[in-house]
Design a protein around this nucleic acid. Structure first.
Lengths: 205, 205
DNA sequence: GTCTATATGCGGATAGAC
DNA sequence: GTCTATCCGCATATAGAC
C-alpha cells in the first residue's frame, strides 16, 4: 500500500470514530507514522483527503451488484426467474449478504458512519447517503418485485410498498448495529425473522 | 424566556445544523445576542450546555405518550380494544401523529439530528438514540400487537416481527426526511401507504 | 518525501471592571 | 450579568533544509 493509500485508510477509520472535525491532520499523520507536515506532500488539504474518500466510495458503489452477488439491474426479468426458484433459505442467504456487505465490509461500514455523521454539514454527502443507502436499494427492489408480481411469483400489490417492507427493516438494523460489528450475529438473526415474514406475506403459494 | 433557556434554544439549533464540534461558544453567544464570555455566567462549559439539552430531552420523553395521544403503556388491554375499534383511517391518523412528533416537533426533530450525528462521539448519546428512537417504540408496539393478537383483532404471528414491520418504515422515512421538514407531506403520503399495507396484512377480517 | 520550525487563527475558558 | 482584555492550546497550513 502506498503512503497515499495508507493516509486514506487511516483517515477513514478516524473520521468514522471521531468525526471529520474531531479528527486532526496530526491524528491521521500519527496513525500513518509520519509527521503532519509530510502529509501535505500527498494531499493539499484535509478536505482533499475527505473528498478522496467520497470519490473512492462512489467508485466502489458502481460495482456493488457484482460484489453482493445481486443480479444485474439491466436484466430484471432473468433476475426475477432466478429468485423465483429460490427457497426461503436462498432469499435469506441473499439478504444476509447484502446486510454483511453494508455492516461489516471494511470500507462501506466505516463510510456509512461518516456519511451519517457528516450529512448535515455537507450537501454532497447528504445526497450520497440518501442515494446509496436509501433510494438505490428501494428502486432496485421495486423493479425486482414488480417483475416477480408479473411472473406470478409474488402476490398482487404495490411493488414500491413491498420494497419498503423488505428494505426498511434492513436499514433499521444497519442503523442500530452500525459501530457494533461484534453483534452482527444478533442483528442477522433478527433480519432472518423479518425476511421469513416477508416471504410468508408476499410469496404466491 | 430566560437567557439560560435562550442559550439552550440557540445551541440546539446550531448543534443540529453544524454539529457539536462545528458550533463554537461564540456562535451560540452571537445567536443569543451576548458576548461569549457572558455565556459562562450561565453555564460553566460548552459541554454543560450540551448535557443540559440531553437532560431536557430525557424529561420530554417521559411524557411522550400523553403528547402523541398514545394509550398508556400500563394498560395495553384497554389500548388494544381502542385500536380494535379503529378504522384504517384511525390507524393512519395515529401513525401520522407519531411521525409528525418526531419529524416536526421543534425540540425532538433537532435532537434527532444531533443524536444521530454525535452518537459515536458520545456513549450516552449512542445509548439514548437507540433507546428513544429504536427500542422503546419497538417494545411498545410489540406489547400492543401481542394484545391485539390475543384479542383476535390481529392475525396470529410474532408480535415483535409485526412491530418491526410497523416501525421500520417510520424510522426509514424519519432518517430520509430529517432536515427536510418542508417535504413532510411527501413523507406522510409514503407512510400512509405503508400503514395501509400493514393493516391489510395483519388485520383479521 | 521526510523532517524541523514557524505563521496564523480560532477554539474554550478566565479575570476583573462596571 | 454584561462587557473588554487576555491566556493558552491546538488546528490547518507553509517554508525550507536534508
Amino acid at each position: 500500500m502506498t503512503t497515499k493509500e495508507r493516509i486514506i485508510e487511516e483517515a477513514l477509520t478516524l473520521f468514522s470514530i471521531k468525526g471529520y472535525k474531531g479528527t486532526s491532520v496530526k491524528n491521521i499523520a500519527d496513525a500513518v507514522g509520519i509527521k503532519d507536515s509530510s502529509l501535505y506532500k500527498h494531499f493539499h488539504s484535509k478536505r482533499e483527503i475527505f473528498d478522496t474518500i467520497v470519490l473512492e466510495m462512489r467508485k466502489r458503489m458502481e460495482h456493488l451488484s457484482e460484489r453482493v452477488g445481486l443480479p444485474e439491474e439491466s436484466d430484471f426479468s432473468k433476475a426475477a426467474e432466478a429468485y423465483g426458484a429460490l427457497t426461503l433459505e436462498g432469499l435469506q442467504e441473499l439478504s444476509k449478504n447484502i446486510f454483511s456487505f453494508y455492516l461489516t465490509d471494511d470500507f462501506v461500514s466505516r463510510f456509512w458512519r461518516v456519511a451519517n455523521m457528516e450529512q448535515y454539514q455537507n450537501p454532497e454527502l447528504y445526497q450520497i447517503f440518501r442515494q446509496i443507502f436509501m433510494e438505490e436499494s428501494i428502486e432496485y427492489q421495486t423493479e425486482l418485485f414488480r417483475m416477480m408480481i408479473e411472473k406470478q411469483i409474488f402476490i398482487e400489490g404495490n411493488p414500491k410498498v413491498m420494497a419498503m417492507n423488505f428494505y426498511a427493516p434492513i436499514f433499521f438494523l444497519l442503523s442500530k448495529y452500525s459501530g457494533r460489528e461484534e453483534l452482527e450475529e444478533e442483528a442477522q438473526q433478527q433480519l432472518q425473522e423479518q425476511i421469513a415474514e416477508f416471504y410468508r406475506v408476499y410469496r404466491k403459494v
